[in-house]
Design a binder for these strands. Sequence first.
DNA 1: CTGTCTGCAAAACGTTTGCATGGCG
DNA 2: CGCCATGCAAACGTTTTGCAGACAG
Lengths: 142, 142
Amino acid sequence: MENNPSYDTILSQIGCKNTKSRKIIIEVLTKTEVPLSAEEIFLNVKESGSSTNLSTVYRTLDLLESKGMLDKYIMSDGRARYKLALEGHKHHITCINCYKSIPINTCPIESLEKDLVNTTDFNITGHKLEVYGLCPKCRKGE
Amino acid sequence: MENNPSYDTILSQIGCKNTKSRKIIIEVLTKTEVPLSAEEIFLNVKESGSSTNLSTVYRTLDLLESKGMLDKYIMSDGRARYKLALEGHKHHITCINCYKSIPINTCPIESLEKDLVNTTDFNITGHKLEVYGLCPKCRKGE
DNA sequence: CTGTCTGCAAAACGTTTGCATGGCG
DNA sequence: CGCCATGCAAACGTTTTGCAGACAG
């Protein structure tokens, strides 16, 4: 793994120590379009020649999520998958077969929320939108 | 529990045996507006004076879900909650404190899906939209 | 009577935690 | 040097499974 200075910057910005594990985990996350499970991240780190521990992966993911750097998605199988939270990419369309996910730029809920405040009297704190489907590659494979 | 004939009908319609456990579980589900976890369903059944087994609850829920009678929501804590799938109620706004959830009648995604087919080349199979907030009661309580 | 369903107990699963050690700043 | 982060192993809570017996049709 290259010693990408931006990872250091990110980590110090959020007030955390710059450890080897954290840098590799962030690197793995930057290199994928697919939201990865904790175990997949763990395996990717191993394949890249480094070593880490699954607990460390979980702890790092919790850390990054708490800092808002990471989006955590709980998939229909109950497992969590993680993807770096890049600016403005709030929603995704995700392949139900290979988990490849690409961002949706428009958010159709914002306008809906205003209606909901009036009709339901809920104090809306957030929303989750996920669209599922088969990506071109997986559609051909079956 | 009353011997509501509609439960029998439902069960025979989907080609399953009409057992006591299944009827009570369905009854519990019909009597709640809040999506329940498996354990909560199990406890509700017990409170209603009947006995059942947590495995049976899970198996019944799987059955009902596979027949499309039940919607399964995986909450942010990773636990699943279940709610009867009544006609047309596809999306909900859910209280993050008490889990009370009420249906949203409009589905803003349908129009979005057409765009997505063109822009992403995914074969869209479904979507999930959940809006979270604090219900009036829980908002006052804090 | 036959095949499905249930209860029980144990396993499996992803995830979390306690504790002693290691290493960043 | 002090404290934060790590590795390990064991615990955790939810869900699943195998099996023998019970029950609906």
